[in-house]
Simulated scan of single mutants.
Amino acid sequence: MDNLKILTRFFKAIEDDFRIGTTHIAIFAALLQFRASKDYINPVLAYSIEIQSIAKVMSPKTYHRCMRDLDNYGYLVYVPTKNKNKRSSIYFHLE
């Protein structure tokens, strides 16, 4: 599934979801941009700083909170790593 379909489905899903804010949207869009730069792989393997830079999110705490939220709310699957030398995995629901 291409990024436009994923983004369209995301916006449709969040229409009535009061839990989602602008930072969640910025991070989700940044993840899609990052995914496009990596030939549309799934899962996306990324360091938080790579996504924060694209999304213009300066605080690592805010980034991690939003990523956990997006995972908990079912918009993606986030598998963080505690190892600073290893990228976290982010899975998009492609069906």
Score class of each variant (00 low, 15 high):
83 N>C: 10
15 E>T: 10
16 D>C: 07
65 R>G: 00
47 Y>M: 05
71 D>M: 10
11 F>A: 04
91 Y>F: 15
28 F>H: 00
4 L>D: 14
1 M>Y: 11
33 Q>I: 14
67 M>T: 01
7 L>N: 07
79 V>Q: 15
75 Y>H: 01
33 Q>N: 13
62 T>K: 04
95 E>S: 14
93 H>W: 13
16 D>N: 13
51 I>C: 08
72 N>V: 06
88 S>D: 06
74 G>M: 07
86 K>V: 13
20 I>H: 01
25 I>L: 05
75 Y>C: 01
27 I>H: 03
38 K>T: 05
77 V>M: 14
76 L>V: 00
59 S>W: 03
19 R>D: 11
2 D>Q: 09
71 D>N: 10
93 H>F: 15
40 Y>C: 09
19 R>T: 08
33 Q>D: 11
46 A>I: 08
34 F>W: 08
72 N>W: 07
58 M>H: 15
30 A>L: 06
87 R>H: 03
62 T>E: 03
69 D>I: 11
21 G>D: 00
64 H>E: 13
86 K>N: 11
13 A>L: 15
54 I>H: 04
5 K>H: 12
47 Y>D: 02
30 A>D: 01
45 L>E: 15
90 I>R: 01
20 I>T: 01
12 K>H: 06
50 E>Y: 09
2 D>K: 10
28 F>V: 06
69 D>K: 11
23 T>A: 13
88 S>P: 06
92 F>M: 09
84 K>H: 10
48 S>M: 11
70 L>P: 03
95 E>I: 14
30 A>W: 04
77 V>D: 07
60 P>E: 06
15 E>G: 08
72 N>L: 12
45 L>Y: 12
67 M>R: 04
83 N>R: 10
55 A>G: 02
70 L>I: 05
48 S>V: 11
94 L>G: 00
57 V>F: 04
28 F>A: 05
4 L>F: 13
9 R>C: 02
77 V>E: 14
91 Y>S: 06
48 S>T: 10
7 L>V: 04
55 A>R: 07
85 N>P: 02
24 H>W: 05
30 A>R: 07
24 H>K: 02
43 P>Q: 08
22 T>A: 13
56 K>F: 07
38 K>H: 09
7 L>M: 12
62 T>G: 05
78 Y>T: 06
80 P>F: 04
55 A>P: 01
53 S>Q: 15
5 K>F: 01
32 L>R: 03
90 I>P: 01
77 V>I: 14
83 N>M: 05
50 E>H: 14
21 G>H: 07
33 Q>Y: 10
27 I>S: 05
86 K>C: 03
89 S>Q: 15
42 N>D: 02
9 R>E: 09
60 P>Y: 08
42 N>A: 04
78 Y>N: 01
30 A>T: 01
9 R>P: 03
86 K>W: 07
26 A>H: 08
90 I>T: 02
26 A>R: 14
61 K>M: 12
18 F>V: 15
56 K>A: 10
87 R>Y: 06
24 H>M: 00
52 Q>S: 08
40 Y>D: 15
60 P>C: 08
